[in-house]
Design a protein around this nucleic acid. Structure first.
Length: 151
DNA sequence: GCCAACGTTGGC
DNA sequence: GCCAACGTTGGC
């Protein structure tokens, strides 16, 4: 079992939106960064736990917990010319982008602010803080517990 | 809205 | 294969 952090802009899709999807969860489409893609494609497993992070908003930070509930499948939006995530270089034979289905587990009573995460000595090496702009990043077990202890 | 960080693209 | 230009992310 591995741990991850996945970012979402709550104006587009928040932890409440994920909760409203219920047990079916939500296909995590639109990731168009190779490093993040590789994490989703090769490194995640069904049952992995996810810190659900709200970015680019008033209250930036970890909003709750989600879970990976599917194997990697091609992200269909890459084939759709109408989609903002359309990739003309992707083909059905050779998809470029993969996604996982993600479901809601828990919403924290209050968001854990990014500023608070930055103050934790246990989190200085956290990928979120070291490589800022990645939308999907790994979390170590000790980082996972350090973050949860703040909730 | 600004701007730093950084990934991607494309000319050579 | 280098690297400059450009685009995107995302905190503040």
């Amino acid at each position: 079992m591995n741990y991850w952090l996945m970012k979402s802009e709550p104006d587009a899709f928040s932890i409440d939106d994920l909760r409203s999807r219920g047990a079916d969860g939500e296909p995590w489409d639109g990731v168009r960064n190779y490093q993040a893609r590789n994490f989703m494609w090769h490194d995640m497993s069904v049952g992995d736990r996810v810190l659900f992070y709200h970015s680019s908003c008033k209250d930036v930070g970890v909003a709750g917990i989600a879970e990976i509930i599917s194997e990697a499948v091609p992200d269909e939006s890459q084939f759709n010319p109408e989609s903002p995530y359309y990739d003309p270089k992707a083909t059905a034979d050779k998809p470029r982008w993969y996604l996982r289905q993600v479901r809601f587990v828990e919403k924290f009573p209050t968001i854990i602010p990014l500023a608070l995460l930055k103050k934790q000595s246990a989190l200085v090496d956290m990928a979120l803080l070291k490589r800022g702009r990645l939308s999907v990043s790994p979390v170590t077990e000790s980082e996972w517990h350090a973050v949860l202890s703040l909730s």
